[in-house]
């Protein structure tokens, strides 16, 4: 039977179902990532972010909530210029964060 519609999927971040393995591993390797205070300076200064929707702040927050879908493609937009690292007030090694997330999400495999 055709209903002409399908049942919408919930768009909430379901922390009971999300697989936190990669998230935990990344935080173990770079604990300083937890110190992000979401100031957005990294995004404000980002060359890629000026031209695309790429936001390192959002990407790593999603990773920390166990949401990985599409993030590798997002991170591939980064040119690794390093300006975000220069402006981060919490001294997060953002280039290491980007490389690590990419590796854990399947890059270089």
């Amino acid at each position: 039977m055709s209903w002409g519609y399908t049942i919408n999927r919930a768009r909430d971040i379901d922390m009971d179902r999300n697989d936190m393995t990669i998230s935990k591993l990344i935080l173990e390797k770079i604990p300083s990532l937890q110190g992000c205070i979401a100031c957005g300076a990294c995004v404000a200064t980002c060359s890629t972010g000026a031209l695309t929707k790429y936001s390192l702040r959002k990407v790593h927050t999603l990773v920390r909530r166990g949401e990985y879908s599409g993030l590798l493609d997002e991170l591939n937009k980064c040119m690794l210029c390093g300006k975000c690292q220069l402006v981060c007030p919490r001294g997060i090694n953002t280039r290491a964060v980007i490389s690590l997330i990419k590796r854990e999400l399947g890059d270089h495999r």
């Binding site: 002409g4 519609y5 399908t6 049942i7 919408n8 999927r9 919930a10």
Partner: peptide, 10 residues
């Protein structure tokens, strides 16, 4: 509206 009904059922 039929197009929105999927969110009702959800």
């Amino acid at each position: 509206v039929k197009a929105n009904r999927g969110s009702s059922v959800a």
